[in-house]
Simulated scan of single mutants.
Amino acid sequence: MVLHNRVSAEELKKQLAAETFKRKTVSFYQYADIKDPQAFRDQLYLQLYDLKVFGRIYVAREGINAQISIPEHNYDAFVAVIYGYDFMNGIRLNVAVDDNGKSFWVLKVKTREKIVADGINDPNFNILKRGKYLNAKAFNALAEDPDTVIIDMRNHYEYEVGHFENAIEIPSDTFREQLPMAVEMMKEHKDKNIIMYCTGGIRCEKASAYMLHNGFDNVFHLEGGIIEYSNKAKEWNLQNKFRGKNFVFDDRLGERIGDEIISQCHQCGAPCDTHTNCKNEGCHLLFIQCEACAEKYRGCCSEACHEVVLLPEEEQAKLRKGIDKGQMIFNKSKQRLRPRLQEGNNPRT
């Protein structure tokens, strides 16, 4: 059997839309010592393919990181597969908070050097020597302590649409940049309680280990990240200290956690926290766009891109040929815009 997808994206999306059953979006991770990542990857792919699981899974020698959707009628069988591996038996499965079941439309299982790119080359670093877990109740209690500092270990565009009260942003769009920045920024707070959090727990767990590795003592991280916190806050009737939306890396691009909208449309400045990708495939910029601007620019980030999408597809293909889009993310704090969008056509200033 072929151990990867061969069906077109267009056809797969049609098949997803035609499904008559519900899906459940789940994320999980586990740091572990996987001796043969490729063999493990192939076996897992076959097991999940048979259960019609969609999503994105990364496997490395240091463990596994997964964001997937599962048909509800296959959920118990899926859990049996995952818990059937000794190193994953009983691990936490983060169930999405705001889920339409259309988060993924294909199964991709890939081997990587690391499940979270961190830039750490120190052979003495040990991911298993990590900070103390905090559940939602313990997080709320410690957050009230004036000797506590809360650090958001997610990217700028995630922090922009939602974060915990009084959380500090590490102003970067890559985790590998954030780790040394966090150490530097926290030097003056070494004697305080340091709480780190992220979406599902995988980044803040590694970040807490890195802080301990660099001489910090009172380091904590939020168990299960924002997703688990939100679920437990509802279950335990706790005050929700998260403001805004939780950015997620699937087709939903976000799930509502807090009631507030704390960010703005990047084009007109109206209150908005809806991320989208520019409809010009030669750009594909990730940015925040309100409904009015989406209609005005036809889902594009600028007049220039709007003009491009009005062209015949053949001409669009010629224009985007050879373009290196790089990391196409709008970061207003760093004015990360493509040069050609700064030449008078981009209304976001």
Rank of each mutant, 00 (worst) to 15 (best):
E10I: 12
Q178C: 05
F28M: 04
K325I: 14
M181H: 01
Q178D: 08
D273G: 02
G84H: 08
P71V: 12
V79P: 04
K13V: 09
K232T: 14
A96E: 06
A207N: 03
R112Y: 08
F87Y: 14
N240V: 12
R252E: 11
P171D: 14
D191K: 11
D145V: 00
N121H: 13
T274C: 07
Y297W: 12
K132Q: 14
S230R: 09
F175W: 08
A138K: 11
H275Y: 15
R256C: 05
Q30M: 10
D191M: 03
L93P: 02
Y210L: 04
H156Y: 15
K129F: 10
L337E: 10
D147H: 12
G201Q: 07
F220G: 03
M328T: 10
N240I: 13
Y157S: 06
N126A: 10
D76C: 02
N166M: 01
S8L: 15
L286N: 12
N193R: 09
L16F: 00
R130F: 13
I57Q: 06
R92C: 08
N214R: 01
K24H: 04
K24Q: 13
D191T: 15
S172N: 12
V183M: 08
Q47P: 02
R92L: 12
Q327T: 06
G215T: 02
E228I: 00
T25R: 01
K132N: 08
R56G: 02
K108H: 04
C268D: 11
L238V: 04
G269N: 05
N231R: 15
G224M: 11
S69P: 08
F247P: 03
R340S: 12
I120Y: 11
T20W: 07
C300Q: 10
A136N: 08
A117H: 06
P180C: 10
D152Y: 10
E144M: 13
T20A: 11
F175S: 06
I194Y: 06
N135D: 15
K190P: 03
L285S: 03
E228L: 08
E205W: 09
T349Y: 15
V97Q: 01
M181R: 03
A143F: 11
D98L: 04
Q239C: 00
N89Q: 13
E165R: 14
K52Q: 13
Y31D: 11
R336M: 11
I202K: 00
S302I: 06
D324K: 09
Y29N: 00
I226W: 08
T349Q: 11
A18S: 14
L310H: 13
K279L: 15
V248Q: 04
R340F: 15
L319C: 09
V149G: 00
L311W: 08
A77K: 15
G254K: 04
Q239I: 13
Y210N: 06
A96K: 07
Y83P: 01
K110C: 01
V308H: 05
L179R: 00
P312H: 03
L222H: 07
E188D: 14
D99Q: 09
R112K: 15
I127S: 10
A233C: 06
P312Q: 03
G225M: 10
K187P: 03
A207Q: 01
S263K: 09
A233W: 00
E307V: 03
Y45P: 04
N231P: 02
V26C: 08
L93E: 05
I329C: 01
V59F: 14
G269D: 05
